[in-house]
């Protein structure tokens, strides 16, 4: 089942006489259970593409379908609803809420997905358990290591079973050992959940965990070498 389909996506910024083509005709399709890495140097347009695929930015041209829903037909409120219900986000800087415990961070994600209040506690613990952090559920992010924080972030992204996961440099703030552990976890959990995963990164080691790697340069996506499924 195709979860994501982006076709002919352009994003052009125009300020006075300056015209920047951040994304130029990107095509990308990702099936359920498939992991795709988008790699490229800084300034290649990865972040812009990520924002478009994450329903946070409208493309200048082209279409993006998430589970068959054309994002261009949705108003801002509907785009918010789509993000909360169907997309899980993993961020480079984890973006956990420092005042909330690990469990409360995951619960917040579930509440946003519309889970009933009486179920979120159990589901959040289950999700934390799946990333090996059930024992740390009541710890604040400040009391956790970088690797643990990213695992909480993954637990939050996967909680509630979204079919589409967008990860932005998930290993960017981690050392090699923690980076590998986090990618191992993300790929394993995403496959178990049958979610389509798009990882934007410039870390070539991530390729080993991906089904497919595409390269981005000067706003264009080009097919890269196939990754090794771990």
């Amino acid at each position: 089942m195709r979860i994501l389909e982006a076709a002919g996506v352009w994003k052009v910024y125009e300020t006075g006489l300056i015209r920047v083509e951040a994304v130029r005709g990107a095509d990308l399709a990702v099936e359920a259970g498939e992991l795709v890495a988008v790699m490229g140097p800084s300034g290649s347009g990865k972040t812009t593409l990520l924002s478009i695929l994450g329903a946070m930015l409208s493309p200048t041209r082209g279409t993006v379908l998430v589970e068959g829903t054309d994002l261009s037909r949705l108003d801002p409120g509907e785009l918010s609803t789509l993000r909360r219900r169907r997309i899980g986000f993993v961020f480079q800087a984890f973006n956990l809420f420092p005042a909330l415990t690990a469990r409360q961070n995951v619960e917040l994600g579930l509440k946003l997905r519309g889970w009933p209040a009486e179920d979120v506690g159990e589901e959040a613990l289950k999700s934390l358990d799946s990333v090996g952090l059930a024992q740390r559920a009541d710890f604040l992010p400040a009391d956790m290591s970088g690797g643990e924080k990213q695992r909480v972030s993954i637990a939050r992204a996967l909680a509630g079973g979204p079919r589409f996961i967008l990860a932005d440099e998930p290993t960017g703030a981690l050392d090699a050992r923690n980076g590998k552990a986090v990618m191992d976890l993300l790929s394993r959990r995403a496959r178990e959940a049958g979610a389509a995963v798009v990882v934007v990164t410039h870390d070539s080691r991530i390729a080993a965990f991906m089904d497919r790697v595409v390269h981005m340069e000067d706003g264009r996506l080009t097919l890269g070498e196939a990754g090794r499924v771990s």
């Binding site: 994450g54 946070m56 409120g77 918010s80 609803t81 789509l82 993000r83 909360r84 219900r85 997309i87 986000f89 961020f91 800087a93 973006n95 809420f97 420092p98 917040l108 994600g109 946003l112 997905r113």
Partner: peptide, 16 residues
């Protein structure tokens, strides 16, 4: 600010 942006990214509405 980053937390509010994260909330919005995760789909929180303006009302929330």
């Amino acid at each position: 600010l980053r937390e509010y942006a994260t909330l919005k990214a995760l789909g929180a509405t303006d009302a929330e």
